[in-house]
Design a protein around this nucleic acid. Sequence first.
DNA 1: GCTTGCTCCTGTAGTGACTACAGGAAGTAT
DNA 2: ATACTTCCTGTAGTCACTACAGGAGCAAGC
Lengths: 129, 129
Amino acid sequence: MIAIGEASRQSGVGIETIRYYEREGIVPKPARAANNRRLYTARDVGRLRLLKRCRALGFSLADAKTMLDLAEQGSDDCPAVKALAEGHIAEVRRKITELERLEAALQELTRNCASGNVSCPMLAELQDA
Amino acid sequence: MIAIGEASRQSGVGIETIRYYEREGIVPKPARAANNRRLYTARDVGRLRLLKRCRALGFSLADAKTMLDLAEQGSDDCPAVKALAEGHIAEVRRKITELERLEAALQELTRNCASGNVSCPMLAELQDA
DNA sequence: GCTTGCTCCTGTAGTGACTACAGGAAGTAT
DNA sequence: ATACTTCCTGTAGTCACTACAGGAGCAAGC
C-alpha cells in the first residue's frame, strides 16, 4: 500500500490527475490510512498505467474508461476492444486527412507571399470569399 | 447596418460566437440601435468572415486575431502574415506526424485481435508496459 | 522541543473556443 | 390581441486536466 505520490511515480499519472480520475469515477476510490491519506495497491497502479497508455494513444477519457472496464471484467472481450480501437483508428485517419487538407490550403495561400510584396496576397485571399 | 442575426448569416459565424468575440475583444464593439440591439456594418461582417476563414484553417483564435489586426493596419504586412502561416503549417505537420505515429501503434495493437480470441492480445499489451 | 521541509488533504478556479440555456424585452405578422 | 421570431444579459457547461489557496500531518536535524 503506497501513497499517492508513489502511485503517481509508478504510473506516470500526475497526482492531481489521479485525484481527478477518482472524482470523476474513472478509477475506484482507494483505501485510506488512519490519517485520511489515500493508499494504493499494485492493482490500482495497474489501472492508472492502462489509462495512461490509452490516453497516450489518443483515446478519449471515456473510451479509456471503457477499455479499463473491459480489462477489469477479466473476460478480455476482444471483439469489443477491437471495435473500440478501430473506431478510434478511423477517427485518427479522419483527423489526418483534415490536417492534410489544411496544410495544402495553407501552402497554396502562402505560395505567392514574398518578403518584398507591398500588399499581401494571402490576406487578400482571406478577405475575399 | 444589419442586426446580429443577419451578420451571422452573412459571415457564417454563429450569433453566440459573435457576442463571444465581442466580449473577448477579438472584434470591436459594434454600434447600437436606440433599442440596444447591435448594428453591424459590411466591414464588421468582413472581419467576422476573415476570422471564420482563419479558424477553418486551424489558426488559434489568438492567431486569427493577429491576422485580423494585420489586415486592419492596411499595410498588409506580408512577411508577418507569412511567418504566422508558416509557423502554423509547421504545427499542422507536427500534428500529422503525431497522429500517424498513433495510427501505426493502434494498427500494431489490433493486428493480432481476432473475433475468436479467448484473451485479448491488445488488452494484454496495454496492461504490460 | 522546535523548526524546516516534504507530502498530503479539500475545494475552487482557470485553460480554449465556444455552446446552451434562463429569463426577459422588443419587434413583426396575422 | 396574439403568436412568433429575434434580440438582450448573464451564467454554466463542455474536455481533460492543471494550478493554486489554505491547511494538516509527518520525518529529520539541531
